[in-house]
Simulated scan of single mutants.
Amino acid sequence: MGMAALSAFEMANLVLGRLAYQVHVLSEQGGPVRNSLGFAVESQPFGDGFFDTTVTIGSLRVKPSTPGLLAYLREAAGTSRRVAGICTGAYVLAEAGLLDGRRATTHWSHARSLQRLYPAVKVEEDRIFSVDGNVWTSAGLDLAVALVEDDFGSEVAKAVARKLVVYLRRPGGQSQFSALLDLEPRSDRVRRALVHAKEKLTNELSVEELAAAANLSPRQFSRLFRQETGQTPAKAVEHLRLEAARVMMEEGRHSMDVIARETGFADRERMRRASLRAYGQPPQVVRRSFESSRISALE
């Protein structure tokens, strides 16, 4: 999974029409390194070469790193412009002491273990990626796309995301969980209705409208939707709207009135009540947490 994220750099070269990135795969001893699927990846041994960005990847089963790997990463932290950890690569950076006192994230299933093992790390367990100084951590592919954006801007990053067939380039503060994935509809009809809702948030999105998108009667649709998702259509639509509102809050470019209108809540009060139900916090508190994270990253 970690190696797959490196495809973003290859796609960036294609988008830019030049060799903007050269990727070198390193290991302590060099030679073939067997991965979790059972086949080997060729690597070069650690040396004295300088790399602009050093990215470390972990493994499905986290295990202690060798002294040589930890020493190499500590040196890289002082010579590379950026040091990054993909998925459980964050454990390796933490083991090397590079995350002490820093904000960091990893795959959601490992986040609490990372916090328990390395209490000096400020683990943000539900972020897509975190940036603290020159240290970047992420759950996966989003980190590589974000690095490309850092180097060449949002338009190149969007083009790379399209080539990777990623639905969109997600902001770092967005939840690792998507409302659509969380609902997990089994049938194409319910899935079509949810995609329609996500794309038309400013509509009323009544049961009748969603049923029409699913090509079902309202009664059939309501029954099937609850069977497949365990929620009412109205509750699912609220979750989609809150997810979109969180993204707009993190961007920091819009007033609460605009966010409420653009996400279909119509007014700030309805959005406030929905936020309290879902997060136990009003939108202003959610927004302040994003703003605080941005300020910390700049510092």
Results as ranks from 00 to 15, higher is better:
V41N: 01
S275V: 09
R74Y: 05
R268F: 02
L224P: 01
M256R: 13
F177R: 13
A193C: 07
M11W: 02
S59C: 07
L60M: 14
L298I: 04
M11H: 08
T202V: 13
L183T: 01
D267M: 09
I57S: 13
A139T: 01
A146K: 06
A90P: 12
Q29T: 06
M11I: 03
E228T: 03
L114H: 08
G30C: 07
G49D: 12
R192F: 01
R102N: 01
R294M: 11
A139C: 07
A8M: 09
T88P: 07
E299R: 11
K200H: 15
D126M: 06
L114K: 00
A161S: 13
V247F: 12
K122E: 09
T56K: 07
A197Q: 11
L19T: 11
S27L: 06
A76M: 11
A212M: 01
Y118Q: 04
R189A: 15
G172T: 12
Q22H: 10
D182E: 13
F225M: 11
S175R: 13
K198Q: 14
E149P: 03
L114R: 04
M256Y: 15
A71S: 15
Q115F: 04
R270Q: 14
F225D: 09
P64V: 08
K122G: 00
V148Y: 00
E209Q: 13
S138L: 00
E184S: 15
D182K: 12
D48A: 14
N134H: 11
S292V: 13
A244N: 08
E209L: 04
S175C: 14
R34V: 12
P218F: 04
G2P: 06
E124A: 10
F50C: 08
L99S: 10
G89V: 06
R253N: 15
L73H: 07
A297M: 05
S27F: 10
E184H: 14
Q22V: 12
P283H: 12
A90C: 12
Q174Y: 06
Q115H: 10
M248T: 04
G58N: 04
D150V: 00
P171C: 03
A111V: 01
L216G: 00
G101W: 09
L164A: 11
L205E: 09
E124T: 01
P185Y: 13
L14R: 11
S289N: 13
E291D: 15
L117N: 04
N203G: 09
G31Q: 06
H254C: 10
K163P: 02
R116Q: 14
L73G: 10
V247S: 14
L73K: 02
A245T: 11
D182M: 13
L99E: 00
